[in-house]
């Protein structure tokens, strides 16, 4: 990995949920924080997302889900992430995610979960920290 390569984040809206205010706001915050962000737009299938993550060589796969369908979406995506050998990428999910589902999402392999009241500062700082840990592990 070249030293000048920015951390790449694929930000996706899986499923049919059209609420993209938060995703776009987070995308802007991540761009301003120096990340290389690709926003997929709405209505992405699991296949669309893993293909885009592979094409973009994303370091981070970020999903925004506010429809309540995060469990079936993430369960399905897990199989595709395994099949596409993207398990070493940081996987984060944001949206309307009830606390009761956090443990199950982590079990599936989601590395971090943000809700609608998470601040941009918190999200940016956490992704910076986690991606540098990830880079450290890759090198070590």
């Amino acid at each position: 990995m070249s030293k000048t390569r920015k951390i790449r984040i694929l930000l996706a809206k899986p499923g049919l949920d059209g609420h993209d205010v938060g995703a776009k706001v987070v995308a802007r915050a991540l761009i301003d924080a120096g990340f290389d962000v690709r926003y997929t737009g709405l209505r992405q299938s699991g296949e669309d997302i893993v293909n885009a993550a592979r094409d973009f060589d994303a370091d981070v796969i970020a999903l925004s889900i506010l429809s309540g369908s995060h469990m079936p979406i993430c369960e399905r995506l897990k199989g595709l992430i395994d099949a596409y050998q993207l398990t070493d990428r940081l996987w984060v999910v944001g949206g309307n995610i009830p606390a009761a589902d956090h443990a199950a999402l982590r079990e599936i392999g989601v590395d971090a979960i943000y809700n609608t009241s998470s601040s941009l500062a918190e999200i940016v700082a956490a992704i910076k920290e986690k991606t540098s840990e990830q880079a450290g592990q890759d090198n070590g």
């Binding site: 499923g15 049919l16 949920d17 059209g18 209505r43 299938s45 429809s67 309540g68 369908s69 469990m71 079936p72 979406i73 399905r76």
Partner: peptide
């Protein structure tokens, strides 16, 4: 629900996990 709003039948692959949800 979202499948109805986006034009998918309830048995469509794109409707998985979304039927009757919102």
């Amino acid at each position: 629900d979202l499948p109805t709003q986006c034009g998918f039948d309830s048995d469509d692959d794109m409707a998985q996990g979304e039927v009757g949800r919102v």
